[in-house]
């Protein structure tokens, strides 16, 4: 069992590595994608500078804390899209019947699919997250926690996308749902949780679980607690089980389009 997991991780990492290498072939495109994504994220600092000029706190958070929240949102998004890009295109693969080449492989279908492609601009998002950490004040402890919460948050974001996109196994038009949830999560993730009413917070920890992918990691960064640490791990595990369960159930409904596809 452990050997199987080890092999799966090794293959997935190789797949991601080759996908990144392939996109690095055009150096100008690679560099502009990464640098402009960092600039793109950094531009929002101006928005928060202006807002903090009006009020000395937003949702009870200081300027540095809001920027840290942005760093976590950016870092988790970076991890999700750099390592699991196909989780966000899953609906198209299902609707167009393009899962055949993954099903015939003697490896886990879901992991093989989601790690088969990387979004190179997401590297800019991830780097920006660490730049923010530098600005916030980097220590070894913070660096470890930041990396840990980014990985957890990134996995959750990818898994939520897989869950909603998997509905395409049953309803073709469910791709709209997946896209909307992804955009919604991103919109909420970049604003403090405290500006929303309690009724909204309920949605943020259920239907649109940005609470688990960004707000919980953010709280853990502000004040590390063993209880919160394990709560985050348990959240990842539960969402993972749910993701694999829904995808595998849906896979039984999958019908091929007999499309000839070669994976290079």
């Amino acid at each position: 069992m452990l050997m199987e997991v080890k092999k799966q991780i090794k293959i997935s990492l190789l797949s991601i590595k080759y996908s990144i290498m392939m996109q690095m072939l055009n150096k100008v495109t690679f560099i502009t994608n990464v640098i402009f994504m960092i600039l793109n994220n950094a531009s929002f600092i101006i928005q928060w500078m202006v807002l903090f000029n009006i009020k000395d706190n937003v949702g009870g958070l200081s300027f540095k804390q809001v920027i840290l929240l942005w760093g976590i949102a950016s870092g988790t998004y970076g991890i999700a899209h750099l390592f699991f890009e196909e989780a966000f295109n899953l609906s198209k693969l299902i609707v167009n019947g393009k899962l055949d080449s993954f099903i015939v492989q003697p490896k886990n279908v879901l992991i093989s699919v989601v790690t088969s492609r990387s979004k190179i601009s997401a590297l800019g998002d991830l780097i920006y997250g660490y730049i923010v950490l530098l600005f916030y004040g980097i220590t070894i402890k913070r660096f470890i926690i930041f990396t840990f919460v980014n990985i957890c948050g990134g996995i959750i974001i990818a898994e939520i996308s897989i869950i909603y996109n998997s509905f395409c196994f049953w309803f073709v038009k469910a791709d709209i749902l997946g896209d909307t949830i992804n955009n919604t999560m991103l919109n909420f993730a970049t604003y403090p949780e405290t500006i929303f009413k309690k009724s909204v917070k309920l949605i943020l920890y259920t239907i649109i679980p940005v609470g688990f992918s960004t707000y919980m990691p953010f709280k853990l960064m502000l004040k590390f607690g063993i209880r919160e640490f394990f709560l985050l791990i348990i959240s990842v595990l539960i969402i993972s089980l749910l993701t694999f369960g829904i995808f595998n159930k849906g896979l039984k409904k999958y019908s091929s389009s007999n499309l000839m596809v070669s994976r290079i």
């Binding site: 055009n26 100008v28 502009t32 994608n33 402009f36 531009s43 101006i46 202006v50 000029n53 601009s121």
Partner: peptide, 29 residues
Amino acid sequence: WIEDAMPFHWVFDKLVLIFGTIIPIEMFP
């Protein structure tokens, strides 16, 4: 000139969003 113009769109989009969409000019220093 450059194959992928997308990064330039990102920067322009953010310029439009931040300087005038979310916050009006009067709020800026």
